Each structure stands twice: as C-alpha cells, then as structure tokens.
Amino acid sequence: MSSPHGVSTEVGRLRTVMLHRPGPELRRLTPRNNDRLLFDGIPWVARAQDEHDAFAEALRGRGVEVLYLTDLLVETLAAESAREHAIEAALTSLHLGETLRGYLRQALAELAPDALKDVLTAGLRNDEVRGGTGLVTSLLAHDDFLIDPLPNLLFTRDSSVWIGDRVAVTSLAMPARARETQLTELIYAEHPRFAGTPQLHGWRHEHVEGGDVLLLSPGVLAVGVGERTTAAGVERLARQVFGAELAHTVLAVPIAQERATMHLDTVCTMVDVDKIVMYPNVADQLRALTVTLRGDDLDVSAAEPFLVAAAKAMEIDTLHQIDTGLDPVTAEREQWDDGNNTLAIAPRVAVAYERNVETNARLEESGIEVVAISGSELGSGRGGPRCMSCPIARDEA
C-alpha cells in the first residue's frame, strides 16, 4: 500500500492501532442511566484503566504503535475550524433550546482543546453550567445531562474501519452513540496525520457499525446484518468498496438480534488466514448472501452456509472453525464474556481475555498463540479486544 495507513485483512501483522483509554466518561455511569448508555454494568474505572494499560502494553510489546483517540482529538481541536465543527455537533440536541445553546456555544469556544475534549467525551450536566439560565435549565433536574457522556468510546472498532487505504466512518444505530462517529470523522478529516485520507460511508448514511465488518481476506468483506447494521447500510458500503476496487465480494451475514450477539465480531473473529474462532451454538444457522458487482448492478446470490460462502469467496478449500468453549454451556458463557472477540496481531497470534480458559485452550491446540489480558472490568460494556481496537495499519497477510 502506498499510504502509511491501510488494512486489507484481519490477521496481517498489526503495525498501528487506535485505542481509547477509559476515562471520566465511565464515571458518569449510574444504575439509572447505564441501560440508556448501553452498558450492562457499572465498571470499576480505576481497574478498567489498569486493564486497558496492560492491553496497550501487550500490543507495544509486539511492536504495535498505539494511538489514543483522545490524544488525536486534542490535537485536532487545536484548529479553529475543527473546534467550531465539534461544538456545533455537540449542541444539535433539540432538548437544549436556543437560550442554553447560545450560552454553551460561547462557553465551549473559550475552552482549551484538552478541556473541550473532556466535555465532548465525558459530557456536561445541568449543575455544571454557570449561565444560560432559562426555562430549559429550570425544568431539568440538576443532574440531567445537557451533553451526554460517551462511555462506548472504549470500543473504537465500531466508529471506523479501514478497508484498504481508505477509512470507512460508520453510522452507529443507537442514538446514545451517534456523536462517537462525528468525533471520529472529525479526527480523520482534520488531524494532520490523516491529511488526504479518502473516506468511505459516513455517519449521515445508512447504519453500518464497525463491529459488523470483517476483512476475511484481501478483496473479501463479511458484514453482519441486523439491528445495528442494516441491509441498506451494507448495500451502500458494497457499492462504495466495489467502486473504489477495494473488494470483489461482500458477504451479507444476517445475525440474531440478542444482546450477546449484537455484532458479527461477537459471533466470530479471524485468527489466521484460514482459521476463525466461532460461537458454535449459532455456527450451523449462520448464513451468508454473496454480493458481487455485475456491470453497474449488485448481484446477490441465494443464502448458503457462512463458512462455505466465505471459503469460496476467499478461494481457499476450507475456512477452519475453532469453537468457543468446550460444550454448549461453556460456549454460551464464554461467548458472553467475549471469548471469540479476539484481536489478531499477526497470523496465528491473537489477544484474548484470560478468563475464557476453554476457548483459549482450543486456540492453542489449533496452533494459535494467545496473548492473554485481564478483562474483568473492561468487559462490563460487552466488548473484547477486537471491539476495543481500530487497526489503522497492518501488513498484508
């Protein structure tokens, strides 16, 4: 690839990754708002930070450059145009009203980049505002958020995914996460490191979430379709990657809409060029529609078993399945604990949560080196090493 950034597979040696270290946004979670903000529990933030630091250090120990989303955001906000864009995006909520919106616009514009970053990511409560008093502030509770926190920033995979030398900024389906992609798009558009990087998709378009996009091999994408990523979103993404000659095949994979299987990467992830760790309780039911380009039109095949369709598209004899867990019961437990949400950092080397001992044993028996990390608190938002990482540069596998 001519660009210093780019990703063509899930398993090429990882060179650069974007993470988000848990921060004050997680301290905004309470039993009253965690469901709305899409967290299953209230994490112990200090422990989550320790676990995340160990995750980042494990990557650095393997020669991976670690970039932090908030560092990139602060550097981006040094530009006046980026600050204005970020502030306007944060104040679009209709519940603010013009009096409060006008006050906040001016107050946020006076903040230094680092302080503005804190507001954009950790949110702003009614009792933290000194002015803009009017009907809206009078009727809101003192602890109501004027700008919501973004606890799911931890899962950097969802808001963007690199396909070849282009970055697809995604469109997140849940309102609580909409601003994540706006901030991510701002970084890619305004940060000097990414100057001139072509973008695909975008947060204004049909819903596609990065956790649903797997780069099975050069030219072959699998995209989960369900509540988070829509069929319309896959159609737009397919047309874009075909038009840019970044792929020749897109597999549309319907997935059951359960809390534990919200994205395709909660069902399966690649650990080698021909090996995939997969939740066995759904493996037999997982189907795929093969989408290719015929002239100017999309050609859509009849559905067939996912592993069969994937092997055909990848032009390999077999895509070998490594089961999560050791039996249906342990498989369900370890799938819930993100046992198959692994992050490949090279062919046959994958980062996984240490608590999923049965799945990790299966991986090792299959010749996969497991880099085990702690995730007792990081996993409270239901996401594993893959969810928490956005690869920006990989070698070709």
Rank of each mutant, 00 (worst) to 15 (best):
I87E: 05
A90P: 13
S93P: 11
L96H: 10
G97A: 08
R101Y: 01
R101C: 00
R101F: 02
R101L: 01
Y103S: 10
L104D: 03
R105L: 09
A107T: 08
D114N: 12
D118F: 00
D118G: 09
V119M: 03
V119S: 00
L120E: 07
T121P: 02
G123A: 05
L124W: 12
L124G: 09
N126K: 12
D127S: 12
D127M: 08
E128L: 08
T133F: 13
T133A: 15
L135P: 05
L135E: 10
L135A: 13
V136N: 01
L140E: 03
H142A: 14
H142Q: 13
D144W: 01
D144V: 00
D144Q: 02
D148G: 05
P149E: 01
P149K: 04
L150I: 11
N152F: 09
N152Y: 10
L153D: 08
T156I: 04
R157K: 15
D158M: 01
S159P: 10
S160M: 09
S160I: 05
V161N: 03
G164D: 02
G164L: 00
D165I: 04
R166E: 07
R166N: 00
R166A: 03
V167G: 00
A168L: 12
A168V: 09
T170C: 13
T170W: 02
S171K: 00
